[in-house]
Design a protein around this nucleic acid. Structure first.
Lengths: 250, 250
DNA sequence: CGGTTCATTGATTCGCGTCAATGCAGGTGG
DNA sequence: CCACCTGCATTGACGCGAATCAATGAACCG
């Protein structure tokens, strides 16, 4: 297990001031319930490229991303890697309720996390059906996103994959009230390749082609500017443009 | 919406006699609660290749597969298809709690289903936290399976994909107490291709190669015999051999 | 028995991977 | 401040694995 630097002071009510609560599962709880969550949470900071947990580690904690970006991935025995998701502020990490993590999680940038001991968190789940329901909604959304990703990996061309990736990142940035015209690309080309089932070189060439076609611009390696959204969406195959429709409250 | 042939008689307690209850979400309920489920369920029979629902249809029902095989898939506008899963007896269908189905579902073979009106089912979820928790466990398992499939689609060769597919099918057959040495392949080569991100021809050639290598035999188009499991697992990349480890009960 | 559907097999093409070279920014130490 | 290194991205030349195109075979069915 990596060493997790703990926040110097355990705040009495970090949730009160939480800037991403409206995006996260915590939003399902009222003030009293939030206090209970507060009582079991620890805030952590993780440096870029540091592991948060490894596949097959005992699943001791669940997390909420407060700040920064996280990648989750699986490895094959010969080192091939598939990144199965990127997480951003508000995203829940560790939803798979297995005894061991079924994937690895690593900080892409500097990251701030809320960390919940699993046993205690599951106690709260039992106590607050609202929270469990919210988690089910979240899992349901992730399942739908996973299916979209299967379409991408199984049936889309390199150009379609990269265009879809940019469009999806922009939609998620928009949800977080972050710029969706000049979109942050905190991850490396290698990460993008391992997420899209491509090599670094193909990702790079595809970015270049999209740039030359006028659909995007590349102000620097950490950003894409969407110059012609219509063109980009057409290249992407037009389907996952919008943030997923709201789940019906139960 | 397709016409669903209703069972001629609405049985008073089909769940009592259900042969797949131990595999399904219904297993989370006691006799009294099962009665409540009984009260909202309809049994349906679906003919091979008939639609169960279409992507973007209002999500009016949830289902449990009792008998037969189902495929779920998404289409791109130009007709490319990605099958995101096959369902077998005991599997729950429609877990994504969105207002509309996010994928299509079609009977592969003759199928028997338990059908639950969504609103009423969600009422029971609120009433029986055990059921909701079981659904969360199921969603969690599906999420893990989806991530395995992403690894397959993003990073595995054609041989590895087909070998993994056979090994996974065998493991699931075993869980249902069905033959796992001569494994049923109810779906067409086209379906297998659309599940594995390959063409029919590549699937066919790969089966032939696996047969010539001695790892499998092909008694007929509806079955694969696993002749040398070790060899097949080695070709698959050895990781999803076992049925997924049990989720911890909450 | 002809017609239809599906699987297999072969020949060829092509998109992406592989290998290799170059560019470029950031960091370090003299 | 600059020389050097290191890691990452870009670009080009080439090869390979799977797709495409095409023909044949096998099973089923009216």
């Amino acid at each position: 297990m990596p060493e997790l630097r703990k926040a110097s002071v355990r705040s009495f009510s970090p949730c009160e001031a939480c800037t991403v609560r409206h995006l996260s599962i915590c939003d399902a709880l009222d003030a009293r319930e939030l206090d209970r969550l507060n009582a079991i949470v620890t805030q952590n900071r993780i440096a870029p490229h540091q592991m948060i947990f490894n596949e097959d580690d005992p699943a001791a904690h669940l997390f909420n991303v407060i700040e920064g970006s996280v990648k989750i991935y699986k490895l094959l025995s010969d080192g091939r890697r598939q990144i199965t998701g990127f997480l951003f502020p508000g995203d829940f990490l560790g939803i798979a309720l297995h005894d061991r993590y079924t994937y690895s999680a690593e900080a892409v940038t500097a990251v701030r996390l809320c960390r919940f001991p699993r046993a205690k968190f599951e106690g709260l789940l039992r106590e607050f059906p609202k929270l469990e329901n919210r988690l089910l909604q979240t899992a349901s959304n992730e399942l739908a996103a996973a299916q979209d990703q299967m379409v991408l990996l199984g049936r889309k061309s390199a150009t379609e994959r990269v265009a879809s990736f940019i469009v999806t990142l922009a939609a998620r940035a928009r949800q977080r009230r972050q710029p969706d015209k000049i979109v942050a690309l905190p991850m490396s080309r290698a990460d993008i390749g391992d997420y899209l089932g491509l090599t670094i070189e193909t990702v790079s060439r595809t970015f270049t082609r999209l740039r030359k076609s006028g659909a995007i611009a590349l102000p620097d390696n950490g950003h894409v500017e969407i110059v012609r959204r219509d063109k980009l969406e057409a290249l992407a195959g037009i389907e996952d443009t919008e943030p997923r429709p709201a789940v019906r409250a139960l």
